[in-house]
Amino acid sequence: MTTTLNEEKYTANLSASELPEGGIWTEAGSSLMRKTGDWKVEQPVWDKTKCISCFTCWAYCPDSCLKVENGRVAGVDYDHCKGCGICANVCPPKVSALTMEKAR
């Protein structure tokens, strides 16, 4: 028997009996349920009009937080962004589509 994890259960903190049997991971990439976005002090703001979709920010984000849609960069995933500022730092200076501001 395998237990499927869901976000509701994660936030409610799983008890020992609710955890998957045998210590197995039931879902690949399940860490997305852990919202590390609440760690941040600052957050990047993405300007759609300035972005040239060079994917530099995508390549260096440690938390895979730059969304990609239809072959273009499509914003920041604030649920997992830890606000390190790498994306704003590597964004080409002439473009500067990403800027840091105080997290809300």
């Binding site: 860490s31 997305l32 852990r34 590390t36 941040k40 984000c61 938390d63 895979s64 500022g85 790498i86």
Partner: peptide
């Protein structure tokens, strides 16, 4: 994918 618990600005995940 994201959601791992490395520090903000960690150098290895990329």
């Amino acid at each position: 994918v994201g959601g791992h618990t490395s520090c903000a600005g960690c150098g290895y995940p990329n």
